[in-house]
Design a protein around this nucleic acid. Structure first.
Lengths: 185, 185
DNA sequence: GGGAATAAGTTGACGCTTCAACTTCTTATC
DNA sequence: GATAAGAAGTTGAAGCGTCAACTTATTCCC
């Protein structure tokens, strides 16, 4: 298991190659990608907030639950599927509980806690779904040809592989090896 | 395990076309795209925060300024280029000013305010760039083939068209036509 | 030329996410 | 079976973004 999360901190000698920015070609692709990953989440969030009174992350959490047997899932797994940290999820579940959309239940195994979608929550997410996905279609699927959708899925899938075992798992799962080697001076 | 795209109980009257969720094909593409637009910004932000002590948005703002003649740009334009709202930008510029990386200057035209990158800020962003883009390469460009990069750029560009004149411009530029027919109090 | 409407920025409050510290429970090891 | 290590969750504080309200400057327009 190679966790090269921390690249060589090279305070000293630098090889010219490592000081590069992006090539011309990369730069223009990067600008477009940056636009999408910045604007799309903002658009989704604000639309859902306006029309359904929930954040996109809350929606995603409830959708996942709604498709689960028993409409229930352990928090640690829910966090991974919803692409969020456990801490973030815990806060969100608390809010959803206050809305009466989700309920915490004790899992059987160990210290497990499950989140379970209530009927009220189920109604809510079923009502929000069509409204939200209409917007998703407008912003994404209506804009692209079927071939482009395929290409997008392919490219995203490849990116996600690296994202999942690199940085973001570091967020989802605590880096237990993180020695707090404070700089002793 | 069946995929219940359509809920079994449907509250209220339903017009079939409008209540659709996503098709099977769309759904799988959507999951991948969602992963990318969720994980990639998080990865970028946390890496830049750790290694350069700034957010990705701050970095983007300073990069834009560094490439501008006079290393200076009016806030309203800077907001658009950096994909952020004017309010967000104003807050960020204030923070950057406190770091001594940016300075506000009065523009010539109208009520214009310019942001100008200081020397210190220039040094900072020039130092951060290579570190950051090394990570970008690791997460994006090293993972994809040149063809995939091209496809990604193409698809992102098409998505951005819709994003820019749809929702997000509503964020960047206030909807002035929004008559706030406030209830007279 | 004097208001009204608009454009450009700023500000403060509120809500959400992150981070680090903490609690509990489970498992390994002797 | 006791103690240590790790896994799963929770919590509070701090920082950032959004939203609405506000301030100033500019333009329109009879």
């Amino acid at each position: 298991m190679k966790r090269q999360l921390i690249p060589e901190r090279n305070p000293g000698p630098r090889t010219p190659q490592q000081l590069r920015w992006l090539s011309h070609r990369e730069w223009s692709a990067w600008l477009q990608l940056l636009g999408t990953i910045t604007l799309l989440p903002a658009a989704l969030d604000s639309q859902l907030q306006r029309e359904a009174g929930m954040s996109h992350f809350e929606f995603a959490v409830m959708v996942v639950l709604s498709r689960q047997p028993g409409r229930s899932l352990q928090l640690k797994d829910l966090a991974v599927v919803a692409n969020g940290s456990l801490s973030r999820l815990s806060h969100v579940i608390s809010r959803l509980e206050q809305q009466g959309w989700v309920r915490r239940t004790r899992g059987i195994k160990g210290r497990a806690t499950n989140a379970e979608l209530t009927n009220k929550g189920y109604q809510k997410v079923m009502a929000a779904g069509p409204i939200h996905f209409q917007e998703v279609r407008r912003l994404v699927f209506d804009v692209l040809t079927p071939d482009e959708v395929t290409a997008l899925e392919h490219v995203s899938a490849r990116l996600n592989v690296g994202l999942l075992d690199g940085i973001s798992l570091g967020t989802l799962v605590r880096r237990t090896r993180q020695r707090s080697t404070r700089r002793s001076s």
